[in-house]
């Protein structure tokens, strides 16, 4: 075997390993979907049944009928969209100010904002709860949305992008007599569509998924989010794994759609923040 064929064979082996790794990463999801179509006895049967013998579609309506999952789904979507809108608007607004203007203490402002990356809700759980209670926002959409509506990550991501926009664009608009807010709204925003798309996808994903925060501030059935509903399902029917997997599979659908539709924006968002310092 000469050197060329040897490196060819090696290349194929590495590719096969990469594919095997991908299968390993996806296996839990495959098992979830497969189990969601099985009977309760079949899910724990040995030898393993990779595919259900005959798919039980009724697991889905039966699982979703146990709790008002439609309401939960709606609440999660409202929360994720509203938080996303806040992140896009306030994030890009602050980022524009930080990237293209000079004013005293600008660097300090930026650093103070960045430092809040180290203050996630998990750390500030108790005091944030108390603030939201003082504002009278417990058990309300406002309580779900407002504390999350501005996020340092979004500001950081947008600032990276806006810094690279040419100054001449902004100066030209200023000479044309555009107001400062007009410049932001009509010139800057349309020019950072890729970054906005990336932030939108990342933000929606993260907030559709919020669990701890709704868990702490929501007790009304009508305001519960989908993750809370799933956790509740687990608490009440922990033996019905086949139905739980059906409910979980439904909870996965918005994320998968989002990812498949906006894969590029998604990956770009992750990379925009990592690339530069």
């Amino acid at each position: 075997m000469n050197a060329k064929t040897r490196s060819r064979v090696l290349g194929w082996v590495v590719t096969l390993l990469t594919v095997a790794g991908a299968a390993f990463v996806l296996l839990p999801y495959f098992w979830m979907v497969s189990s969601s179509f099985k009977t309760q006895d079949a899910i724990f049967r040995l030898p393993l049944e990779w595919m259900p013998r005959e798919p039980r579609w009724q697991n889905y309506p039966s699982a979703l009928g146990r709790f008002p999952f439609g309401v939960y789904f709606f609440n999660s979507t409202v929360m994720a969209l509203a938080v996303m809108a806040g992140n896009l608007f306030f994030g890009s607004l602050a980022a524009y100010g930080l990237a293209k203007f000079r004013f005293p203490l600008r660097e300090l402002c930026f650093r103070a904002m960045l430092s809040t990356l180290m203050l996630p809700l998990e750390i500030l759980l108790v005091p944030t709860f108390l603030v939201v209670r003082q504002l009278g926002l417990l058990d309300s959409y406002g309580g779900l949305i407002v504390p999350l509506a501005v996020d340092a990550f979004g500001i950081f991501l947008m600032r990276q992008y806006i810094t690279d926009l040419p100054d001449s664009l902004i100066e030209a608009a200023r000479l044309d007599g555009c107001t400062e807010f007009g410049i932001y709204w009509r010139i800057v925003l349309p020019n950072c569509r890729p970054a906005l798309a990336a932030l939108a996808v990342l933000s929606f994903r993260e907030n559709w998924d919020q669990f701890l925060w709704p868990l702490v501030i929501i007790s009304k059935e009508a305001l519960k989010t989908f993750p809370l509903g799933l956790a509740q399902f687990e608490g009440f029917h922990s033996a019905s794994y086949h139905e739980m997997m059906a409910a979980a599979a439904v909870g996965m659908i918005p994320m998968i759609l989002l990812f498949l539709l906006f894969q590029r924006a998604f990956v770009r968002g992750l990379t925009l923040t990592g690339l530069k310092e």
Binding site: Y29, M32, D209, P227, A248, G251, M255, I256
Partner: peptide, 8 residues
């Protein structure tokens, strides 16, 4: 899998 919910 990056897109999957924590709760799922």
């Amino acid at each position: 899998p990056i897109a999957m919910s924590q709760i799922v």
